[in-house]
Design a protein around this nucleic acid. Structure first.
Lengths: 346, 346
DNA sequence: GTTAGCACTCACGCGCGTGGAGTGCTAAGT
DNA sequence: ACTTAGCACTCCACGCGCGTGAGTGCTAAC
């Protein structure tokens, strides 16, 4: 169980090929298939010897005698560190993606949707996405529209250009004029404030202003909280992976996705570095995640508004492709959002 | 292959029990299990005779000699017509659902989400939902907010209280004052118009007004079109059904859901009646739907804004439960939305 | 019209044998 | 000292045959 700097060049190459082959073919790979498929200038016997070494060092594993080798978490880790972390998405893929984004509405929701779909497609696995969550939201502007005698539609825009709507039910009938006047007053008062600041500054209101103001504040804080929801996409791809053929593994996956507990199991192990993070099998903190591999990155503007974006699949996962596409998407999303968020100074 | 009015009371009862038993247990049901499980005052031999009749009439089928019976499409149809169409959701379930709706934001998106989740849970299958689509959208009000020098955020509210946002990129720098003035002008001009009417009435605009106006019209028509998207929910439930254990059937299901073709295969067979519609197996027009059963209802206000709401599962589906829950949800959603849509006169 | 009895039919589960992929080891070659 | 051919060995996957049991249809008696 010595560390990786003891790996010879040839061992590294063999390990690389084992991972690559196993990820592609999803079948334990033997010495023979390896020399068959790749122009190694050595014999299968030599490969076998090296495999034995690699196994002793814990990089690969055989499920039983006379079966091919399968990478261990450590083997994947080696592969990721040495061949995947630096990888970039092929230029034509980049172009293809940008093109798709150009064809879609300039709207956060559409972007998230598209990002999830693209990621899932590239990695052939489930993609994970959260809305970007501002650490704290500031009100930019809100509007009141009379729906009927007692119902009012509240539309609220934050400094980050998130639009939220809410309903407001009043005890008395109020005209659109009164509503507009009220909105004008309060907009002046509360512009640019966070929920907390607004709460402090508006203690002396009463009547309609009071009611509306409370509702605005509630909606504003809800904007912060409710964004912390993990959406997933592309289950159909994951189901095609042979790992999920027997319904037991598929069930595990769904249990993970359904409960909404996934995010809380994922978050604690994320550091705030801004590059890709990869967790393979038992590297995950939560046992529920041990059968899986996760590739995630944060995206957003500055450190103030960040969302999560990643891929979840079996341990046997195309890490190189996953990493490059997640990284690319994270950067793209950050770029796209900068437009909206730099409006802060307007 | 004679029609059902020839069924004796006893045959009807036996057929009913076969369907019930098979839906519950997902295993072909034999004469023995039937008299075992239910207090029929007849022997298994008699049941066998009746089963033979039912089979001759095409209500049930046996996969091979010496296997139990399984309902045919016709058998399910009989069950649905006679025992399911009238069924109502148990009162405590109704209360439970209403309670859940009370705990959620007064917002269309949240409602749809919850409705989908409830339906999927009740029927233990995939639920289908479309946003309510107005046959034609009228503008109520829009707003322009300067993001930065050249980017403008457009927020648009339709008469049905749907809120949409869009981005607008200008060639020249424009101040928030100019934007507000422009919005005021155009709001006066275009209020209460459909996209088409607005297009006709605003031919003589130019400059900023022209650009903004075009954008508003585009966004407005997009509101109509883009709502025609079918969302699904609760795949995890469906996967637990033994029908989808082998990945082949599951794959079929996902192919159906993914492509987005489902809606176009479903729509042509829907009539505009406002009650539940059920399609069992080969009753479906599209061959892709033959392995499945579908229960759908439209919801909405008047005939002008309608959405779709339903359940998709294997032919062996709890039709009674599905029908009652879909119907209940459709009514509930219609009720909930009436608030928003009756605001038309405001 | 109903029922007991019986012969018959298949799917399903189980044990078994075999083929083959893959290994580790040894001995010879470079 | 490293590589490689050869070989014996291991063990999973797969196919086959068979017994079992659930379920039937038919017939004859009630």
């Amino acid at each position: 169980m010595s560390s990786e700097h003891e790996l010879t060049l040839r061992q590294r190459e063999i390990l690389r090929l084992i991972v690559k082959e196993y990820v592609q073919g999803s079948r334990a790979v033997g010495s023979h298939t390896l020399i068959d498929r790749y122009p190694l200038r050595i014999s299968s016997a030599t490969v076998r010897n090296e495999m034995a070494s690699l196994e002793r060092m814990g990089y690969i594993h055989q499920q039983h005698t006379s079966a091919g080798r399968v990478p261990t978490d450590r083997g994947y880790r080696f592969y990721v560190e040495n061949y995947a972390v630096e990888s970039a998405l092929p230029p034509n893929d980049q172009i293809m993606i940008r093109h798709q984004f150009r064809q879609v509405e300039t709207q956060l929701e559409s972007w998230l949707q598209l990002a999830a779909s693209v990621l899932a497609g590239f990695a052939q696995n489930v993609s994970l996405v959260t809305s970007p969550k501002p650490s704290v939201s500031r009100l930019r502007h809100f509007e009141l529209l009379s729906l009927n005698e007692r119902s009012v539609l509240l539309i609220l825009v934050t400094q980050e250009s998130t639009v939220r709507q809410g309903m407001l039910h009043l005890a008395d009938e109020v005209s659109q004029q009164s509503l507009s006047a009220c909105a004008d007053r309060l907009n002046l008062l509360m512009a640019n404030l966070t929920a907390d600041e607004a709460r402090a500054k508006t203690t002396d209101l009463s009547g309609l202003d009071r009611i509306v103001c409370d509702h605005v504040i509630t909606t504003l804080s809800a904007t912060q909280a409710s964004a912390t929801e993990l959406h997933y996409h592309g289950v159909e791809h994951a189901l095609q992976q042979p790992e999920f053929a027997g319904s037991d593994a598929a069930q595990q996956l769904f249990d993970l996705l359904r409960g909404g507990a996934l995010l809380s199991e994922l978050l604690p192990q994320l550091t705030h570095g801004d590059d890709i993070q990869v967790f393979i099998g038992e590297e995950n903190r939560s046992e529920d995640l041990w059968p899986f591999g996760v590739v995630v990155a944060t995206y957003g503007v500055d450190q103030e508004v960040t969302g999560l974006l990643g891929i979840l699949g079996p341990r046997r996962m195309p890490y190189e492709r996953s990493i490059s596409s997640v990284r690319y998407m994270a950067r793209l999303m950050s770029d796209l959002m900068r437009d909206l968020y730099t409006a802060r100074d307007a």
